Amino acid sequence: MLKKAMAATAVALRSRRPSLMVTCRHSTSVTSAVNSLLLRSLKEHYLEISRMTPPPKVSPPSSFSIIQGALDGNGPVLTRNYGKEEVKISVMRLANIVPGGGGDDGDDEINQLFLHVTVSKLEQKDDLHFLCGLYPDALGIHSVSMRPKAESSGFLVVPSGYNGPVFEDLDEKMRDIFHNYIEERGINESLFPFLQAWLYVKEHRNLMRWFRSVGSFINEHKNAKED
Rank of each mutant, 00 (worst) to 15 (best):
Y82A: 10
G101H: 04
V119E: 00
N206F: 08
H221N: 15
L115N: 07
A150G: 07
R14E: 00
L115V: 08
A10E: 01
I218K: 06
L199E: 03
N163M: 14
G69F: 02
S120M: 11
G154V: 03
S65C: 14
I97K: 00
G106F: 14
L131M: 13
F194M: 01
E151R: 00
Q112Y: 06
V58T: 06
G100K: 14
I67G: 10
Q112E: 15
Y135A: 09
G215K: 03
L71T: 10
L195R: 05
I66E: 12
H129I: 07
T23Y: 08
R93Y: 10
G100W: 13
R25F: 12
S36G: 11
E184C: 14
F211H: 06
N81E: 13
E85Q: 08
S65F: 05
G140D: 15
N206M: 12
S190G: 06
K3P: 11
I110M: 13
Y200Q: 07
S213D: 12
N206Y: 08
V157L: 13
L47R: 09
Y82H: 06
L156P: 05
L2H: 03
S63G: 08
E172R: 13
R25G: 11
G100M: 15
N223T: 02
D107W: 05
L71N: 12
S50D: 11
F178Q: 07
L191F: 08
S62K: 15
H26D: 01
N96V: 03
V91H: 04
L78F: 03
Y46S: 09
F178M: 09
K125L: 11
N96T: 05
I97P: 00
P193T: 03
K149Y: 00
F211S: 00
L42K: 04
P148D: 03
G154W: 00
F194V: 13
K57E: 11
M208T: 01
W210V: 09
R209T: 09
R80H: 08
A70S: 10
I49A: 13
C132N: 08
I218L: 03
A138E: 13
N96L: 12
E123L: 05
G100T: 14
L113A: 07
A95P: 01
P76H: 00
D107V: 07
E184G: 10
K43C: 09
E189F: 12
S120T: 06
L39S: 06
R175Y: 04
N81Q: 07
G103T: 09
S143R: 05
E109N: 14
L134T: 12
E109C: 02
R51W: 01
Q124P: 09
K3T: 15
F194S: 07
D176K: 14
P18E: 07
I218S: 00
